[in-house]
């Protein structure tokens, strides 16, 4: 039995069936983005379809139909009911696609800072629960490491800047104090 290995499903589909098949797959992902996000959260919380249906007051078959459907057929009421049953609140935000990527990134960074500030306020309110404060410290450390790793990973993908024919940089004029130390060191 011959098998061929790929790093991604996209590469497999491209090879087996061509670019149109990959485009169709992405189109499907676009049309079911919200449903998939909700189902992923349900999955992460370890909840079965049956349990979710019970929490929502839906029949299992109704929930099955929703999860097997398209975003265009979802109602806002169903999204809210699904989210509420998972203990989530729904926030609507509108992304301006005409904004440059840098502006969109800044917006997300400000949102993350808001959330972190909320966590810091929670820590500040703790009187006796030093365990919780310790966990929040650890979480800040994790956030920093995870962000730094992902930042570095993304940064690696930027092509290097190559300058051709530039004048070599002139050495900076040392400050008077530094000059004295340099003179002393080289005596």
């Amino acid at each position: 039995m011959n098998t061929k290995r790929y790093d991604t499903v996209d590469a497999l589909v491209l090879d087996a069936a061509g670019k149109e098949a990959v485009d169709a797959m992405n189109q499907h992902a676009e049309e079911t983005r919200v449903i998939h996000a909700l189902v992923s959260i349900r999955n992460d919380k370890g909840r079965s379809q049956r349990q979710q249906a019970k929490e929502m007051g839906y029949s299992p078959s109704k929930l099955c139909r929703i999860e097997a459907g398209r975003d265009a057929d979802l109602t806002l009421g169903e999204i809210e009911a699904y989210a509420r049953a998972l203990g989530l609140s729904v926030h609507l935000s509108f992304d301006d696609a005409s904004l440059p990527a840098a502006a969109q990134i800044k917006r997300h960074v400000f949102l993350i800072k808001e959330r972190l500030d909320g966590l810091a306020e929670l820590a500040a309110k703790q009187n006796d629960d030093s365990k919780l404060v310790k966990k929040i410290h650890e979480f800040y450390g994790e956030v920093l490491i995870n962000f730094a790793m992902r930042f570095g990973d993304s940064y690696q993908k930027i092509p290097p800047v190559i300058t051709v024919g530039a004048e070599p940089a002139k050495p900076a004029t040392p400050a008077p104090y530094a000059e004295k130390r340099l003179a002393a060191a080289t005596r």
């Binding site: 098998t3 061929k4 497999l12």
Partner: peptide, 8 residues
């Protein structure tokens, strides 16, 4: 690091 393989 999961990969995905397909038979012919």
């Amino acid at each position: 690091q999961w990969g995905v393989a397909v038979t012919d």
